[in-house]
Write a protein that binds this DNA or RNA. Structure first.
Lengths: 226, 226
DNA sequence: TAGATGAAAGGTTAATTAAGGTTAAGGGCT
DNA sequence: AGCCCTTAACCTTAATTAACCTTTCATCTA
């Protein structure tokens, strides 16, 4: 069963390219040029994700997003925008967007963001019941972190964060990906939230000096394990 | 060192402009007006990316792309076209194009897409966990520089700069390559930024007089290690 | 042709801005 | 209540920008 993408774009020419490319990647794509028709499609097509151009004739992307949100709280929405003002981005998140991409974008980039929101991890190996992280033992499903006799129960977010960092250990993980994965979008409200959780994890992990969460300012983090 | 672009374009006038612009951005550009000659160039020039106009005399862009694909599965291909028919676009992607730009296009847009496609397949030569630089030990992923008992944590940019210089030690590295690698572009502002980071690194490295970052005015730097 | 001159590139240090770190105070949920 | 998440306030540090200084090199002039 292919994942379904509802793609709202008034530039027909660009739209056809994007649609066709996504289809070759194994998605079912319904393309619509008129914002006012989106709601109808939502009911019949049942998309897994929406990609909305912001500059639409008639109804703009924000309005469409708000309509979608009224019906479906969780459906991931990606905005495409030519504008670069922060206000627009903020507005995008406020009306319920999960991610945004600036035009001109490369199709590769769009695919990455789509897969990210759909949680299709290219090669994310499944975690075992028990993972050895430095001197710690981490039990992902139990949300438990053990060092020697010291058992610490992790909260859901703590555990998700550790999981994500561990899966991508020694690689740079982008803030944006963490936020999308754990909080569902990367607005700057949640952004500060991530900082708080990184601090918490660092606190837990500091007993083993061979483990470190390195900050890459403006980009994300890198989880180092000896 | 520079990335190589094979650019196939029959409009000589436009072609010259694009070629020159790309060259100022630090690419080596081979321009060809005849589609039939492309394959020869492929063997000798070994481009990192191809930019193909679709309307070519003799052999059209799709045919050329198919030929390229037969030899190299992964080489990124960008199509340029003035045609507006969708069938052409679809055809382009089916013959293995990675991206697509409609004429008239802005050169900025072309550059964005080129860089995007290059990043995807780009992977720098790997460094070891621990590299010995003069009397220092450098831990690239840990962003750590050690001299005797003296541990210095490097910031991301400091570490990236040192990595780049070390990989190209004893060779001349161009400012614009450094800028493109660390800052993503070589605009005027980042240029001064690089100066600041070079000064910082020199400060850190001055404890070992056998190491030196030599300035080559107007070109770049040379990292000397005894 | 030596030396003067000025422009351009880069060096250095400091100021500014922005990102993130830390801690603690709300606020909702069970 | 107790837990977890969020938000806010305040602090620290990295990254950027700016300002001013030095070197280099080409060109001009005596």
């Amino acid at each position: 069963m292919n994942k379904k993408i509802l793609y709202v774009e008034d530039e027909v020419f660009l739209g056809k390219i994007v649609k066709e490319t996504l289809e070759t990647k194994g998605y079912d794509v319904l393309m619509e040029t008129n914002g006012a028709h989106v709601i109808n499609h939502l009911q019949r097509f049942h998309p897994d994700i929406c990609v909305l151009d912001i500059m639409l004739p008639g109804k703009n992307g924000y309005e469409v997003a708000a309509e979608i949100r009224a019906i479906n709280e969780l459906l991931p929405i990606i905005f495409l925008t030519a504008k670069v003002q922060t206000e627009d981005v903020v507005k995008g998140f406020k009306t319920g967007g999960n991610d945004y991409i600036r035009k001109p974008f490369s199709i590769e980039e769009l695919i990455v963001r789509i897969e990210n929101l759909l949680q299709i991890k290219q090669s994310a190996p499944d975690l075992l019941e028990e993972e050895k992280i430095g001197n710690f033992l981490f039990y992902p499903t139990k949300q438990l972190l053990v060092l020697n006799e010291n058992h610490r129960k992790l909260s859901f977010r703590e555990s998700e964060l550790l999981k994500f960092l561990w899966i991508h250990r020694n690689a740079i993980v982008q803030r944006r990906d963490l936020l999308n994965h754990i909080w569902g979008n990367d607005s700057f409200f949640n952004s500060r939230n991530l900082d708080v959780y990184v601090t918490k994890l660092r606190g837990y992990l500091k007993e083993d000096p061979s483990i470190e969460i390195i900050t890459i300012k403006g980009v994300g983090y890198r989880f180092i394990t000896g």
